[in-house]
Design a protein around this nucleic acid. Structure first.
Lengths: 338, 338
DNA sequence: GCCTGGCACTCGATGTGCCCGAGTGCCAGC
DNA sequence: GCTGGCACTCGGGCACATCGAGTGCCAGGC
């Protein structure tokens, strides 16, 4: 177990390194932080911290920098979440309130998060599987062509074309629309399959094929995992990384383009509250020198999607966590209102 | 006027520089291209080309690189558009055909374009103002709350919430829906305002306020320029630029995040056919060292939106132009089918 | 037992001088 | 108008010396 002072030293190292981006030595530490001991003592502590794997030396004759393990300890034990100030909160609220539709909400959230944290922001669209149905609309575009429009309580809209096996009259369509909505409106998406399975039975024989086709398209839309969309912004902030660019920035940009990777990453957060994944804790190789801070957001008590930021492991964790948490909270409010 | 051989020299310089990324000297030129004259002669030609501003020397004792003006001449007079090969065409078609909806079409197009050109791809969503209305749907969510859903012939869907000044019955809503669609379905967006202006007159006095509100929301949706959305991909390709990263890549990433800038840029293309904007021809400062190759695409004869790529001025223009043109063509086809 | 000052050592960063060679401009001659 | 020759320029790369921040270790003191 590390002594209290050694934890202080680790905290100081993390804070200094995050601020200066340069390895921090024993002398600078004692000067900038009132540790009350001499550099030599700190050196001993640093040696111990290095033995335990919390810090490392980039070069023999240089200061120390935190390792992923060091950051982990810092985040878990040594630092809290820095709450947003009043003006910041108001700015967030103002910025999000002007949104006209869901796309706009997401776009604004991304911009906001990128600006607040000065890092890359990632916002997932509200998940279909965790939403409820607001309305299902059916439009006849041609005798045997129907457009299916699905509207969720979070304002998300999905549409699909359906080619019917047989012509389908307006009255039958109206009938189907009414029955469908009375069954599924207000229900959770996961319950829909169960709720509509016997629906074809209520129709004339010649229409059953079409009804089944429409329903299966609807179900497809619901389960389609790859419809988990997301929006990314603030990639220009990546250029603030280190000075060893090409090697650092490229794999990150590549990882960001792999939406599947990102979705998986965000999906990993299980418990409520802010999740932090540091460096090698990220499964994807391209993100081994970055940290991901994410949290769920939603209109009610439950999360319908995730949002977060991706930045260098050397980041201001308390501040970033505070910003991410605050933005998630306000986005949830906005969604609840619409 | 430049002699034929000097044009050949310029072409050779552009081709070599694009290939090697290094300033090209007189000796290398005579060796790699069968110009049939000695290096000394080429030097004279190069001096002349430099006087005219087509090429420049980064350092006194280095080879020459093309200037923006040089690339311009190359694109206009010295190079054609390199058509895609058969297999490439088939690959494009296959890749685009699996798309399930408009978002998917756009997303796939971006990925495709980025891969083909190995540059940053930008695809604009089909413009509202240049599309026609397929259907307008009105949904009553609460007595005085209506959701307006607008569906275009290109498959794009926009929705807005409307807070009505007075409760609005289901029958009145159905009436409005029917009247609205009979007037605007199949018409161009630009004609809509004219077509609906007298619509409130057909309703009972107490409903007119609501009808007007709905209509003005509809019109708002149509004109809202900022609803011109676009999707970007392949930013990782920026890392292939030069080696002088931070300064080169950052302004580009910043410019790409400014969607307004990009939209303006794409909008500049007036005539049909591929547009090329080279270096300083781009109004935006951050893009001064990049070239933009763009073209309109659409389901019919007319362009409903633009797509293109952003890359270093040192790019393979014929190949890039060919890829952009081919992709635009196939996307147009896909849209026409849906 | 823990902290401290002192000391020798390491090694990356920085600066200097030097050489090399690719590439140039110019000129006289064919 | 093309060509070979020649003197010149200048950036890149290498070797070398210097500098200093930072370290590990040790003996002494509270």
């Amino acid at each position: 177990m590390l002594s209290e002072r050694r934890l202080q030293v680790l905290r100081a190292i993390v804070q200094d390194y995050v601020g200066t981006e340069e390895p921090v030595g024993s002398k600078a530490l004692t000067e900038r932080h009132g540790l009350g001991v001499s550099p030599a003592t700190v050196r001993n502590d640093m040696a111990a911290l290095e033995d335990e794997g919390y810090i490392a030396q980039p070069h023999t004759s240089a200061g120390r920098i935190p390792t992923d393990k060091g950051y982990r300890l810092f985040v878990d034990k040594l630092a809290g979440v820095k709450p947003m100030t009043g003006p910041e909160r108001r700015a967030i609220q103002n910025f999000l309130e002007g949104a006209v539709d869901l796309d706009d909400v997401v776009a604004r959230t991304v911009r906001l998060l990128a600006q607040l944290t000065r890092q890359v922001a990632v916002v997932q669209y509200p998940s279909l599987t965790r939403s409820t149905v607001r309305h299902v609309e059916l439009l006849s575009l041609a005798p045997a062509r129907v457009m299916l429009v699905l509207i969720t309580d979070t304002g998300r809209v999905e549409q699909r074309m359906v080619d019917c096996p047989a012509p389908f009259g307006e009255t039958a369509l109206a009938d189907l629309r009414a029955r469908l909505n009375s069954r599924v409106a207000g229900r959770r998406f996961t319950d829909v399959p169960r709720l509509v399975e016997d629906l074809p039975d209520a129709f004339e024989h010649e229409d059953r094929g079409t009804v089944s086709t429409v329903l299966s398209t609807l179900l497809e839309t619901l389960v389609e995992e790859n419809e988990e969309r997301l929006m990314i912004g603030g990639t220009a902030n990546l250029t603030r990384f280190g000075h060893d660019f090409p090697l650092t920035i490229r794999p990150v940009l590549e990882a960001l383009e792999e939406q599947v990777v990102l979705l998986k990453l965000l999906g990993e957060a299980k418990d409520p509250g802010v999740m932090v994944r540091i460096g090698h804790e990220n499964a994807h190789e391209g993100l081994n020198s970055t940290s991901v801070v994410s949290v769920g957001y939603g209109s009610g008590g439950e999360a319908v999607a995730k949002l977060g930021v991706v930045g260098p492991t050397r980041m201001d964790y308390p501040g970033t966590m505070g910003a991410v948490r605050a933005v998630a909270r306000y986005v949830g409010q906005i969604l609840a209102e619409s």
